[in-house]
Structures are given as C-alpha cells and as structure tokens.
C-alpha cells in the first residue's frame, strides 16, 4: 500500500462547451495539507466537486485511497469528508439531530454515534450550540457545522472548499489550528482566497488559473528559495552604483529619496552593506528584510498570464 491517498490524473471537466478544468494531475500523500489557490472562476470548486463525487469528470481519473470514484464510489466516498462552498445543512434541524444524521449516513455504528457527535462538536467549538436550530445560527456557526459534518466519520481525506468564509478573526484562527491538527493524521485539500491562510496552514500550494495548474510548490520552499531583498533607507544620498559594487548584491533600485530596494543573491547576507554604510557614514537607519510573499507570487503569476493572453 502506497501512502498516496488522493490521485488525480489528467482530469478535465466541461460544462457544455465551456472548459472548467483541463488536464489536472496531482496527488496527495497521507498527512499533507494541500492549498488550492486561484482567482474566482479558476475551477477550484469544480475540481473539489469532482474529487468528492458530486460531479462526474468529463475525462481523467480520480482515486481516493486506491478506490476509483466512478468505479467504486461507495468505498471511495467512505474515505472522504467534504465541505462544499455552501455548507449542506438542514435549516430545520438542530445541530445535534443534523450531526447524528450525518454520522448515520456515513455508516457509523449506532452505538458510536453519540461519541462521534460529541467529539466533532468539541473539535469545532459547537458544545453550546447542540440544541439550536441550524437555520438560526450565524454564518460562522453554520460553517463550523459544515466542517463538523465533514470530519464526523474521521475520514483519511478531507476536502474543504473555502472553510473560513464568514468567520470572525478568532474563529478563523481556531479553524486554522483545527485544520493544522487535522493535517497530522488526515490529508486535507483546502481551497481559499486568503493567501496568508495557505502560508499558515498548508504544506503545499497549487495555484490554478483558467483550469490549469500554473504553480506548484511546497510552502517551505516558497518561504526560502527566492532571492531575498531588503528595503534600505539612508540619510545621505548615495548613488545606486555604489551599492552595486558591494559584495553579494545583485541589483538595486532607487525608491524615493534615500530609499533603495536591494536584491541579494540567494543565501547572501547583508554584512557588506552594513559595513560599507558604517565606514562611509551613509546614515543607515532602516534595513527591512522583504520576503516574497505568496501574495506577490499570486498576483505576479495570475497577472502575467493575463497580459500574456492579451
């Protein structure tokens, strides 16, 4: 048994003639959290609906823990918890009734249902909401009920479509830490618009645009591998060429008066710059490391593709 839990191969999906996703391939190992990023309409939700068996793929294959979603849907879905974009809750049921029903639907034996319901209520912070009607709950609480529903049968694979929409910042942090802790034992696929969320919770990130994966990397590599840049502010006017002559500096660009953005080669450090500044009395008063954030990358990637398309 390999530990690849989700295998997506050459997946395409058309709505009539409109192509929502084309030839996606990726895989997910046990214990990984994969972040799915993309602008609106990029095909994130479609991909998740196909993986969860809510939509049939036009082409390609999806297998969950070795079970093909089309050939053995029941075995595949048993390994799967899915939170769609809109939480699939019954507004006329109470939280307890609803979660019990979900537990039974996922074939949890009758005598373990109560324990499972208690566990997810505790995990999702729903202890106080048990007897309330779902229709009367706030959006954030409904979202939590949706997450609770997806993890009630302890599935190895969890698919969450924008799980933190509508949550306040504190709930948001709780849900993120919940997702992180789920990621220890489960494989999680997560889609979101919020880029910092991906950096905070995911092991790997995929940026998808117009139905194609345009970027794929681990978040760790994302935080390291790029050339580092510093924002430098000097009291004394200095010519950018003087900076360039220093050790380890690739190039420098002047921003406003006395400020520069200085790019270093990967893994170089700004010793030389500081030394030079002290010796020549440039009056260094600001030295801020700039990390290339996911946001920059996201905008750069989606934007450059757009202009390339024009």
């Amino acid at each position: 048994m390999s530990d690849v839990l989700v295998q997506v191969e050459n997946l395409s999906r058309y709505y009539q003639s409109h192509c929502a996703i084309s030839h996606l391939s990726f895989s997910l190992k046990a214990g990984e959290v994969l972040g799915f990023l993309g602008p609106n309409g990029a095909g994130k939700s479609t991909t998740m609906q196909v993986i969860s068996g809510n939509l049939a793929p036009s082409e390609g294959e999806v297998s969950i823990a070795g079970h093909d979603i089309l050939e053995a849907p029941r075995a595949a879905k048993q390994q799967l918890g899915y939170l769609p974009e809109h939480p699939p809750v019954y507004r006329d049921a109470s939280v307890d009734e609803y979660l019990k029903y979900c537990a039974r639907l996922h074939r949890i034996p009758r005598n373990q249902v109560a324990a499972a319901v208690d566990r997810v209520k505790q995990q999702c912070g729903l202890e106080d909401a048990g007897t309330r009607l779902i229709g009367n709950l706030s959006k954030g609480y409904q979202q939590r009920v949706g997450i609770a529903q997806a993890i009630i049968h302890n599935p190895p694979v969890i698919i969450l479509d924008e799980p933190t929409v509508g949550l306040d910042p504190i709930q948001n942090r709780e849900i993120r830490s919940l997702i992180r802790s789920l990621g220890d034992q489960h494989s999680v696929i997560l889609s979101t618009h919020i880029l910092s969320e991906v950096q905070a919770t995911c092991d790997r990130v995929q940026i998808i645009r117009a139905g194609e994966i345009i970027y794929h990397s681990s978040t760790k590599a994302l935080n390291q591998g790029h050339e580092s840049s510093f924002k430098v502010a000097l009291r004394k006017p200095v010519n950018p060429e003087e900076l360039l002559s220093l050790d380890g500096i690739d190039h420098a660009e002047a921003l406003d008066a006395g400020r520069f953005r200085v790019f270093f080669a990967p893994d170089a450090n700004p010793d030389a710059l500081v030394e030079a500044a002290v010796q020549q009395e440039w009056g260094l008063y600001e030295l801020i490391p700039e990390q290339q954030s996911l946001e920059d990358l996201f905008i750069e990637l989606t934007h450059s593709e757009e202009s390339a398309a024009k």
Partner: peptide
C-alpha cells in the same frame, strides 16, 4: 438549499 451534496458525497 444545496444540501443535496451531503447525500451525494456520503457513501450511498
């Protein structure tokens, strides 16, 4: 209500 996906993604 989009709750059909609960049944659709259950092992049924």
């Amino acid at each position: 209500n989009r709750s059909l996906s609960l049944l659709m993604s259950s092992p049924l």
